[in-house]
Design a protein around this nucleic acid. Sequence first.
DNA 1: TTATCATTCAACCAGCTAGTTAAATAACAG
DNA 2: CTGTTATTTAACTAGCTGGTTGAATGATAA
Lengths: 118, 118
Amino acid sequence: MHEQTLNLDIIFAGLADPTRRDILRRVAGGELSVTEIAQPYDLTLAAVSKHLKVLETAQLVIKRRQGKQQLVQASPQALRDAAEYLHNYEQLWNDRFDALEQYLNVEQEHGPQNHPHL
Amino acid sequence: MHEQTLNLDIIFAGLADPTRRDILRRVAGGELSVTEIAQPYDLTLAAVSKHLKVLETAQLVIKRRQGKQQLVQASPQALRDAAEYLHNYEQLWNDRFDALEQYLNVEQEHGPQNHPHL
DNA sequence: TTATCATTCAACCAGCTAGTTAAATAACAG
DNA sequence: CTGTTATTTAACTAGCTGGTTGAATGATAA
């Protein structure tokens, strides 16, 4: 389906850290250098650099060098892949819960039995 | 926004494991007991039980007891929350990349400079 | 070349994760 | 009660994660 190896493991793992999600939020607004990214956090540059490597490996961001700086920008494909994955389940589960709801309505007409609680 | 504490950390961490995503896929098709869930994997029941606890903590599944068995079913809210999170970024990033594309088109009329590579 | 700024790498550490085996608990059947 | 089936808990382990400090690298400026 996709040209590159889509790795949901590392995409979701990349998203599973609040500092990294905050970085994503901030670079979504425009390119930032590593030092700029690090500024709000009580972390060393080395730690932030590691977070960026995780995001880069997951292809959630890309970096380009501009002079001394590395500029980081959002890269939407990985996130789209993750969203697509979730969306499929949403669809499926919505259908299932609709079916369950209907089943429960029918049940009520016949009197209560043991049925899964919502 | 949501009645319960929405914890994206543990939702995404829950999704970041292929066995757990496979379990989700299978319970999306209908309730399964722990033993049924464990059957296809080369894992002990204890290991599967731990995976289920992770999914349950993330509220990606719920369990109910039926006699000796624990029946596991998908619980859509956490997944919806994650999807909603991603969808916001998709939106934002799509806008951003549209803007960038437009910017690049204007640039071409004026001759090439150093601009971010897509 | 030397100094400076921006970033990464290497080595290390504490805590977490995903697995194991073995024992414990829960629900039911006789 | 006793045994059987289903699942969880406890204790342990190897490897991963997220952080640190200090040295190394890359790019530019003087």
